[in-house]
């Protein structure tokens, strides 16, 4: 089953982004490509837990950011790219949440079920694919976020520390 949300008026989308011109995402794409390649290289066993869902198309919707992300965790053709919210691609599953909560999930610092119980995490589409992805990421030792931040040296690590401080604050808007 694939979902299409080309005209889905996401009520949680930041108000202004609806009226802004599309973001120049071409600057972001090579970074995302490097990030996913690094994670895949360092954690090859991650793909085993995805089972038949390696080719599933996951849309990740970080609420509060002006773009979404498309992940296809196929080791033969890894895809991780940003898209403008006006051009959301078709997907098998959709995962939405605050950026910092999603970062926490990737970081092994947040519990997906708890975020679901508190309604801070939205899931739709192929639930089995989402469960596989969650379990695969959760079995990655250490912190994916730290590994990614390390790719960008001290500025990357400083940015991650800042994000974590923000996440620790109560009622953060991100």
């Amino acid at each position: 089953m694939q979902m299409s949300h080309p005209s889905d008026p996401n009520p949680a989308r930041p108000g202004l982004s609806r009226f802004l011109p599309p973001m120049p995402l071409f600057l972001l794409q090579p970074i995302l490509k490097r990030v996913v390649a690094r994670v895949a290289r360092e954690n090859p066993s991650l793909f085993n837990r995805l089972g038949p869902h390696k080719t599933a198309r996951f849309v990740i919707d970080p609420l509060g950011l002006p773009f979404g992300l498309l992940l296809i965790p196929n080791p033969e053709a890894l895809t991780f790219r940003a898209f403008n919210r006006r051009d959301e691609p078709a997907s098998d599953a959709r995962i939405g949440g605050k950026f910092l909560d999603l970062l926490g999930l990737m970081d092994g610092g947040a519990d997906g079920d708890a975020l679901f119980f508190s309604r801070d995490l939205d899931v739709s589409g192929n639930t089995e694919a989402v469960v596989c992805l969650r379990n695969a990421l959760d079995d990655v030792e250490g912190s994916i976020a730290e590994s990614v931040a390390g790719m960008f040296g001290p500025p990357g690590r400083a940015a991650l520390a800042g994000l974590r401080r923000l996440a620790a604050k109560k009622g953060d808007p991100a």
Binding site: P11, R119, D122, V123, S124, N126, T127, E128, V130, V131
Partner: peptide, 16 residues
């Protein structure tokens, strides 16, 4: 409750 049979449908009013 096998995950393959679980479906979450978000409604326009935000309910699930």
């Amino acid at each position: 409750s096998p995950a393959a049979d679980v479906h979450y449908d978000k409604q326009a009013d935000g309910s699930v």
